[in-house]
């Protein structure tokens, strides 16, 4: 197995992880602060958007998706879309009852 295909030649420097961690903590605190301000129905939407941004960092950097075979990222996106589709179709029932 050649190392490039295995994605092992890529060593992520320690610094990158620390930057990402700082970003993640900042996003968490932003999310908590925003809850204190009343934004009405937008509160949950914004909290979920921030969570999605945080998870994309975790997936891409911590979980190495950015440096792996593209097949992995495509599969992850596919699974997330599938889950969203199932939630949407289930809600088709509840939203219209």
């Amino acid at each position: 197995m050649n190392p490039i295909e295995n994605g092992k030649n890529h060593i992520i420097p320690y610094k990158t992880f620390l930057y990402v961690l700082a970003g993640l903590i900042a996003l968490t605190l932003t999310s908590v602060t925003l809850t204190r301000i009343s934004l009405g129905t937008l509160t949950v939407t914004i909290a979920l958007i921030i969570a999605a941004v945080k998870s994309s960092f975790v997936l891409r950097i911590f979980m190495h998706l950015k440096f792996e075979n593209k097949m992995f990222s495509r599969a992850v996106i596919g699974v997330i879309m599938l889950l969203c589709a199932v939630i949407t179709i289930t809600l088709l029932d509840y939203l219209n009852r």
Partner: peptide, 13 residues
């Protein structure tokens, strides 16, 4: 990752 979603859904709503 799962906690990242559990946290806002239970604590921040």
């Amino acid at each position: 990752l799962i906690w990242i979603f559990l946290f806002p859904l239970f604590y921040l709503i």
